[in-house]
């Protein structure tokens, strides 16, 4: 189904009354789109349907930094999340496996996930730290979306990826006049997708990943020499979902509070009595890389890293995940 992008955005804007809408927009001094609660074009700016993934990962909308699993906010309105890129769709795939499809279901995540329509869009360029292709993914929606909306010129090629997406597009058809999908448009889309993939591949030509089951060397300490242990890589990662739990009391009112936690932080593994399985920084670093490149795949058959590059962007010491992996691999080869 093809519609004019302008018409589509008008339609989305008309849904504001009954829906909460989140969309990527440009902030004045930033080149990476920013995910905001979108209040319409006039108030919040034009949604960015191309470009690259947003600064914040979508997990912030599905798994808030602080939440009470016994008394969480029930959705009052359905949510529409615009402009999710493939790296984040794949990250949601991992979160779905971990929090919805495991033996136990996370109630907060389920509520948010069931209540959100995910509208995926293509990357139209490569960010400097993007490396989805290294992780085996494409820079355009592959799966795990409700609606895919690929921008081509002044139009959008829309397709559905779920029953929720079917319902959305059916309702939209009644309001907008869909157009024929002309062959040149599809050709242009294929060309653009190929071009962006090549851009990402070229950007990452100096790195390679030999497979999902990375051997992580305990002794590869020089990969992390400059780490200042801020935990930013954990919190910005679209697949990190570790949390800690505490009881809180205000008078006789008790609540259970879950807060994001990061395995790079020293207190992460510490048990009552003070012993700590990962007291040393290199042990925590090793744990994170093992988690991303080995454990998560074994647990959920989904990559723990989707190549979004946010951990590299956020790192104050500019530790590049691709460099770190290369260093680790070099150690492994020396050992052999």
């Amino acid at each position: 189904m093809v519609v004019f992008t302008g018409d589509f955005l008008c339609y989305i804007e008309s849904l504001l009354g009954n829906n909460e809408i989140y969309a990527p927009v440009y902030r004045a001094d930033m080149s990476t789109p920013f995910l905001v609660a979108w209040k319409g074009r006039e108030k919040s700016g034009e949604p960015v349907l191309g470009s690259i993934r947003t600064l914040d990962p979508p997990k912030i909308l599905f798994f808030p930094t602080r939440n009470d699993p016994l008394n969480y906010e029930r959705a009052k309105k359905t949510r529409i999340l615009l402009g999710v890129k493939n790296c984040d769709l794949q990250a949601l795939q991992l979160l779905d496996e971990a929090l919805l499809k495991s033996d136990f279901v996370d109630p907060v995540y389920r509520e948010a996930r069931e209540n959100t329509l995910v509208v995926a869009t293509d990357c139209t360029e490569a960010g400097s730290t993007c490396h989805c292709t290294l992780q085996g993914y494409e820079p355009f929606p592959q799966d795990n979306f409700d609606v895919s909306a690929a921008v081509v010129g002044d139009r959008l090629i829309l397709s559905s990826g779920s029953p929720k997406g079917d319902r959305f597009l059916t309702a939209m058809k009644n309001e907008l006049l869909p157009q024929e999908e002309p062959a040149p448009l599809t050709d242009a889309l294929i060309k653009r997708r190929t071009r962006v993939r090549e851009e990402v591949e070229e950007l990452n030509a100096q790195w390679s990943l030999s497979g999902r089951e990375e051997k992580i060397d305990h002794q590869a300490r020089d990969a992390l020499d400059s780490c200042i242990e801020c935990g930013g890589c954990n919190f910005i990662c679209p697949t990190c979902y570790c949390f800690l739990m505490n009881d809180e009391s205000q008078g006789s009112v008790h609540s259970l509070v879950r807060t994001w936690d990061g395995c790079q932080l020293k207190g992460y593994g510490r048990v009552a009595g003070g012993s700590n399985p990962r007291l040393e920084l290199f042990e925590r670093f090793n744990h994170r890389y093992s988690c991303k490149f080995k454990y998560m795949f074994r647990q959920f058959a989904v990559n723990g890293c989707t190549g979004c590059g946010r951990c590299t962007d956020v790192c104050p010491s500019r530790i590049d995940v691709r460099d770190a992996l290369r260093t680790i691999r070099a150690h492994e080869q020396v050992k052999k």
Partner: peptide, 10 residues
Amino acid sequence: GLCRHCTIEH
């Protein structure tokens, strides 16, 4: 199996 803190290997 949700909070991930207790992982021993995978």
